[in-house]
């Protein structure tokens, strides 16, 4: 079973909210000082889904990450969890992309990898939450995709996927090769072990530049964007609490109703 997992390095979503800042002139998020980036948590669960299949029936897991100046100790995490190989699409030309240009570059790299049975992605990245790259890769490769999986099994050339819906889950069978996006309902991703960390530290990632995978330069990174970001801002949330004073509970109720009427809530 040949599996590919797409993993994105993102700003730590668990960083204190007070450290979150925006550069409004450039519509960019300012990385919080002293808070290292992480692999997007849904992508870690995608790695976990692949590892569970590898645990049961063996196979090879190749991790694919796109970006520029990627931190090795961060992007190597899937290796420390048990993945076999890491390919980095790393170049400044990949910067500033959107869901389309990212899906295009990843799909092109996957074609270069060649043989695969399953591709896993997180259901969405923890930075922009767009949730489009996985399906985009499947479309570009012309293979079926199942989104928001909570369980994945591979049997007899098919994947059996439990897909999360609002009031339960669907069971979907899909022929391989296929792409599956993984949700948090899969359960916690395993911790990196010391032995895994030591092995990962020794492994060198394979670096591919745009020319190595033969992408059209006008379709990757900022030039390849098909969406335009008009404004990036932090919404201001204000909470006010007013205590309704009264001699008796009944009077307090009357006063509350009056206030709500004045505010045109009732």
């Amino acid at each position: 079973m040949n599996m590919i997992v797409c993993c994105k390095q993102v700003l730590d979503p668990e960083a204190p909210p007070a450290s979150f800042k925006i550069d409004p002139a450039n519509n960019k998020v300012v990385p919080p000082p002293g808070v290292p980036p992480v692999i997007s948590p849904f992508d870690e669960q995608a790695v976990e889904a692949a590892l569970r299949i590898k645990d049961n029936q063996g196979g090879k897991i190749t991790v694919l990450s796109l970006g520029n100046n990627l931190l090795r100790d961060v992007v190597k995490k899937p290796l420390s969890m048990g993945a076999d190989e890491l390919i980095l699409l790393e170049d400044e030309a990949f910067e500033g992309g959107d869901s389309w240009s990212t899906a295009y570059a990843l799909a092109t790299a996957i074609k270069k990898i060649g043989e695969f049975d399953l591709i896993f992605c997180g259901r969405q990245a923890a930075d922009w939450d767009a949730g489009q790259v996985g399906s985009g890769i499947a479309e570009l490769l012309g293979i079926p995709s199942v989104t928001v999986a909570k369980k994945v099994e591979a049997v007899d050339g098919k994947a059996r996927v439990e897909r999360v819906i609002a009031d339960g889950y669907q069971v979907i069978e899909v022929t391989l090769p296929a792409l599956i996006t993984v949700s948090n309902e899969l359960g916690e991703a395993r911790y990196a072990t010391l032995k895994g960390i030591m092995a990962a530290a020794k492994k060198q990632p394979i670096i591919w530049k745009p020319s190595d995978i033969g992408v059209d330069p006008s379709q990757i990174g900022a030039p390849g964007r098909r969406s335009k970001l008009f404004k990036l801002f932090q919404p201001v949330r204000e909470g006010k609490c007013e205590i309704i004073e009264a001699e008796t509970p009944a009077e307090a109720g009357t006063n509350l109703a009056t206030k709500l009427r004045e505010a045109k809530i009732i």
Partner: peptide
């Protein structure tokens, strides 16, 4: 080192 950073992260 890269390995020590990964130990810290884990």
């Amino acid at each position: 080192t890269e390995e020590q950073k990964m130990i810290a992260s884990s």
